[in-house]
Design a protein around this nucleic acid. Structure first.
Length: 557
RNA sequence: GCGCCUGUAGCUCAGUUGGAUAGAGCUACGGACUUCUAAUCCGUAGGUCGGGGGUUCGAGUCCCUCCAGGCGCGCCA
């Protein structure tokens, strides 16, 4: 399907070049001329702005040029049946039935591979997301990054890229130490050993859970030792227990990471010191006020940033430099970070690092997402880990179907804050569009089941017959189906998952209309065969798209 | 004060590098099951695209400015 866009452009280019008495640069032509789906379906399926692009240069009105050009265009392959100019200067193309049929056959032939392309062949992407600190459970907001990141990864893969999903664990900072102290205090509290809860410690209930797990593991006596003798071990153990919980929750969401990267590795391997030293030698890092600073202001950041504190401890940003170096060493073609909007200010400094380390800042890409607002009883719920009050992702998973949660998180642009209304999601979950789409799959399965009962042959792709597709609803459905590969490509280019959900909702609507107006199993065998082929194709596309979203395609509902 | 994001129907949102009469869903109201699942379909209603300027054949989209909201501007992570 994607080829037809290029084919049309090629025909347009050849014709424009021959027809117009001006110099035409090929590269510019391909950049400026657009072929897209027609907004006005009555004129055609695809449309181009070619006449607008050139009308000025030859001093002619767009509509006149569109008329002239339309008459000269010719497609020897027979893909296009009608070429009509329309006001104020578009040229519209109508796809031939022959072409549509050949595309539908591809769906049944390629099956799960339909819609994929080779754009990213041989290219490797590192996609880092969630990376929530191991100091507390994932909250609902993290669910957005999890669902989006996983879905984006699937989109990249459908476009031929190899993707490594990575989770960065901050297991080395003061936060982890504070968690350890909090856990120790809770352990002692449970065991009735006198202790004080650390100032600014984590007050959440989950700290008790970790404490209980730890007591079970270590035995009661362990906690009578002096704090400084066991605290380091407790920090490590607590982090491990917490990460175990986080992994479990992500798996409940259907999200699996390829690499779990520990920040502590950066120090253990000596990479951190190595990178800082090397940058210092090249004068990208300097010493001032007893601290070490990175010259990010020279690369677009508002100011220089501290990488090693007065105390000698690395800052989060300092670790990030070494971490990026580590990723770059691993040789990915692209390193993508998905961050919450609270980190947008850190983008410039990371790019500065990329420039300094690799001179190829394009290898680093940061996708910024807006937050999730949790709404309960019509009021926003303030989520704060420090105050220990938040709604966890796990709690949400207990109350709602995984499919609904994932769909909900990927259905909107990341640029938009997401209001997650708990009451609405719980009580009125049937209104969720995910069911509307899944229902298409279930309805098709139901027809197939019926066909089996009646001994009607379910056509394999070499036996399908689409010649009897002629009803408007059948044609509309067919056309929507064959645009699927274009959607996958577009979703990848824009890093936008909602393009797929929008497409699915529209496809589902068209299918349900088809279903209402056209019975599949009818007296006429030829019509039955055609429509069976059409619903098989629909089933395949729905299944493929839902797979990318990480949502199941149920046999019945 | 500076930076990023957002402002489109009553509500939630689409709207690819500027293009055709600005679209869906939900809600409201009115219709459609003797047939493959009514978790469906059809119809009606709903808009100064936050305000104001500018750029041009043409602006929801680009530029300027103002207003409103979210987030950031740490030797926190």
């Amino acid at each position: 399907m994607i080829n037809i866009y290029n084919k049309i452009k090629k025909v347009l280019y050849d014709e424009v070049k021959e027809m117009l008495p001006i110099e035409i640069d090929m590269e510019e032509f391909y950049k400026e001329v657009i072929v897209e789906r027609s907004r006005e379906k009555k004129y055609g399926d695809l449309a181009t702005n070619t006449a607008f692009v050139f009308s000025k240069r030859i001093n002619k009105s767009p509509i006149d040029l569109a008329h002239q050009l339309s008459e000269r265009l010719y497609f020897p392959g027979g893909e296009i049946t009608e070429i009509v100019p329309s006001h104020p200067g578009f040229i519209n193309f109508k796809l031939s039935n022959k072409f549509i049929n050949s595309e539908l056959i591809k769906i049944l032939e390629l099956k799960s591979r339909y819609g994929t392309n080779y754009t990213g062949k041989g290219k490797k992407i590192n996609l880092e997301f969630v990376s929530s600190n191991p100091t507390g459970p994932l909250h609902v907001g993290h669910g957005r990054w999890a669902a989006f990141g996983d879905c984006l990864s699937n989109i990249f893969e459908a476009n031929g890229y190899e993707v490594i999903k990575e989770y960065y664990i901050n297991d080395a900072g003061t936060q982890v130490e504070l968690l350890g102290k909090s856990v120790l205090a809770r352990c002692r509290e449970i065991l009735n050993i006198p202790s004080e809860f650390p100032e600014g410690g984590y007050p959440g209930k989950y700290v008790y859970d970790i404490a209980e797990t730890l007591i079970e593991k270590k035995g009661k006596d362990y906690f009578s030792y002096q704090a400084d003798k066991i605290i380091k071990d407790i920090c490590i153990q607590s982090t491990e227990i917490m990460m175990g919980r986080i992994k479990e929750t992500l798996e409940m969401m259907g999200v699996k990471f390829d690499i779990w990267f520990n920040e502590s590795e950066l120090y253990k391997t000596g990479l951190f010191n190595q990178v800082i030293d090397s940058l210092e030698k090249k004068n990208f890092i300097y010493f001032k006020d007893d601290a070490k600073w990175f010259v990010s202001s020279k690369y677009g950041d508002d100011k220089d940033r501290v990488v090693i504190r007065k105390t000698g401890e690395p800052t989060y940003f300092g670790a990030d430099i070494a971490y990026l170096k580590n990723k770059l060493n691993r040789g990915y073609d692209k390193n993508i970070y998905i961050w919450g909007s609270d980190h947008h200010g850190d983008v410039m400094r990371l790019k500065a690092v990329a420039k300094v380390l690799e001179k190829e800042p394009a290898k680093v890409e940061v996708i910024i997402g807006q937050f999730v607002n949790l709404i309960s009883k019509g009021k926003p719920v303030r989520m704060s880990r420090r105050r220990g009050k938040f709604f966890t992702l796990r709690e949400l998973l207990k109350e709602l179907d995984k499919d609904v949660i994932r769909y909900f998180f990927v259905m909107k642009s990341l640029d938009t804050p997401l209001d997650f209304d708990l009451d609405l999601a719980k009580e009125k979950s049937m209104e969720n569009p995910v069911y509307y789409i899944q229902y298409v799959h279930a309805r098709i399965e139901s027809i197939l089941k019926k066909a089996k009962e009646k001994d009607i042959e379910i056509p394999s792709f070499d036996k399908i017959n689409l010649d009897f597709i002629s009803q408007p609803d059948e044609i509309a459905l067919s056309k929507e189906l064959i645009f699927y590969p274009f959607i996958i490509k577009k979703a990848c280019q824009n890093r936008a998952t909602h393009i797929i959900t929008n497409y699915l909702e529209n496809l589902a609507k068209i299918f349900h209309l088809f279903y209402t107006n056209c019975r599949v199993i009818v007296e006429d065998n030829s019509v039955t065969n055609s429509r069976m082929s059409l619903i098989l194709a629909t089933k395949q596309v729905i299944k493929n798209a839902l797979k990318i979203l990480g949502v199941s395609a149920p046999e019945s509902m």
